[in-house]
């Protein structure tokens, strides 16, 4: 495989993208929704606080956006490295 280094760079870029996404995924659900909720209790949202909103709604919205953004960025990455179908 002549393009070994290119495919290694492709994989490294993919893993980096996944890491960033998993940090966001963790922060909005386990972070804002559970662990950090007491710290966000000062921010009022519709009769309750921001942490409650993230736990019951906000995290799901962020998850959806994340998957589409990841899919788009991966399409770009696939094309850059010439590994698209």
């Amino acid at each position: 495989m002549a393009d070994k280094s290119s495919s290694n760079a492709y994989w490294a870029a993919n893993v980096r993208l996944i890491m960033i996404n998993l940090i966001i995924w963790f922060v909005v659900s386990f972070g804002f929704g559970i662990l950090l909720r007491p710290m966000l209790s000062g921010i009022a949202v519709g009769g309750t606080d921001l942490g409650f909103w993230f736990a019951q709604q906000g995290s799901i919205f962020v998850f959806m956006i994340q998957i589409f953004v990841y899919a788009m960025m991966m399409n770009k990455l696939d094309a850059e490295h010439g590994v698209e179908e």
């Binding site: 996944i18 996404n21 998993l22 995924w25 659900s29 929704g33 409650f52 736990a55 019951q56 709604q57 995290s59 799901i60 998850f63 994340q66 998957i67 990841y70 899919a71």
Partner: peptide
Amino acid sequence: STYLMGWTGGFVLLAM
């Protein structure tokens, strides 16, 4: 809320 986050957050893992 565990059910809401848990049963949707898994799709992020699945997709990536």
